[in-house]
Structure formats: C-alpha cells, structure tokens
Amino acid sequence: MTDITPNETLDCRGLSCPMPILKTKKTIGNMKSGQILEILGTDPGTRNDLPAFAKRSGHEYLGEKQDEGFSRFYIKVK
C-alpha cells in the first residue's frame, strides 16, 4: 500500500454519509482512466461504502491505509 502515488486527493474528513460518496463520484468524473484517487475520511461508514461504490461503478478499490485519526482510501478509475 505504501507505493501508491495518487493523482488526486479528496479531503472528506469530517464529512458523513452520503457526502464522501457523492464527492468521490464527482471527482472521478473529472479524472482519466487508470488514474488513482486518494480519499481522506473519518466516517466509519466510508469503509463499507467506498468499496461497494467502486464495485457497482466498475472502478477498482485498491484498499485503505490508517493515518493518525483518519483513513486514506484508494480507488483506481476505470
């Protein structure tokens, strides 16, 4: 997980459902195929929601990394 360099970072810390998903959806819309989006989040629900969102919309969920007091999630755009 440490070798991932994201093309863009979306800060969703402090936001709760459904804002992280909607902001992710919007940001991905402006990205190119194969690029990697990093999402910073603090809502425990995001851990379930992001992989489910990625699966449904065909993007690749790469995983998450714990940071101090928040999580980093990675999605590869289809």
Partner: peptide, 14 residues
C-alpha cells in the same frame, strides 16, 4: 472539508 479538526487530538485518539 474539516481539514484540521479531524487531526486535532489525533495522537490522543490513537
């Protein structure tokens, strides 16, 4: 985003 707020006390939270 709340930016800093999630970090503040991050150490303590751990």
């Amino acid at each position: 985003a709340a930016g800093g707020t999630a970090d503040s006390g991050g150490k303590k939270a751990i």
